[in-house]
Amino acid sequence: MPDAVALLRKMMLIRAFEEALARRPDHGFQLLSTGEEAVSVGLCAALESDDQLLSGGRSIGAALARGVDPGRLMAELLGRTEGTNRGKGGRGHVADPGVGFFGAHAVVGGNLSIAAGVALSRQVLGAPGIVAVMFGDGAFGAGVLHETLNIAAIWRLPLLFVCNNNQLSVSTPRSAVLAPKVLSDLARAYGMPARTVDGMSLEAVADAAADAARGVRAGEGPAFLELESLRFASHSTSARETRDRDVLAKMRTRCPIQRFQGALMARGEIDEGVVAGLRREIDLAVADAIAFAEASPFPAPGEALTDVW
């Protein structure tokens, strides 16, 4: 596992970045990953430079965990031309393949077959690296998940399926709309290794991801991880929160950042001074990202017609 302090720092960066973004009056419409930081960071700890990651629309944590520059990401989220996508994609479509973030795609389940295509390209061209695709439990209701599990299995694609099971599709609990009790059981039926892991534990996620990635990297075909997480905020910055306040308060006591930080402190690997230093450093990094984004202009209206054909 990479340096524990670096992983803690990444989770703290995601939290601080999203909080700063959500405070802005001009952030538009965002899907935050507060509470789910261990999922992205633990997964990305298992990815190497030749690998590619695809995410769904809840993309900010995934992009930062994979190493997308915070300034370019912030610029993209705020619609500025120095953004990863020239400000034309936004949160649902952030893409930076140069750093291994092939991109977000904001159609639930829509990124699965695309990720399989990216994996197929590697297989046919003999290119190194594996592909990981993150999606929510909501995608389990979509037929394309099953189509893609099947094709990935029969073609032995170098593809790691990562279900971030945050238990909710907007307001609908998964128990109301998905029949399987354990989502990873479905993947096992297609003959691939599949596990369900505590997504609130960075170390559990990182270990499981490293284990799964190893098999995919060795040419054993696809693997599947279900990471059980908790979404601390409502579906989006404009969606109503439907859960009780005390339920949310209790949920927040399971914060993955606090948990990992506590574990590192208990083991004597860090102390309060290290945490305070990280906090200062991250506040600066977020301020820099915002300054970078603010210095970048919006696209000219004429760009509505560029790069269409």
Binding site: L112, S113, I114, G117, L120, S121, A127, G143, E147, I151
Partner: peptide
Amino acid sequence: RVRDTPVAEAAMVGLGVGAAAAGL
């Protein structure tokens, strides 16, 4: 390079566009 697929048009087109975006 000449691949028979299951009856899965949604995934087939998705694999096609994804593979295209990644170099094929």
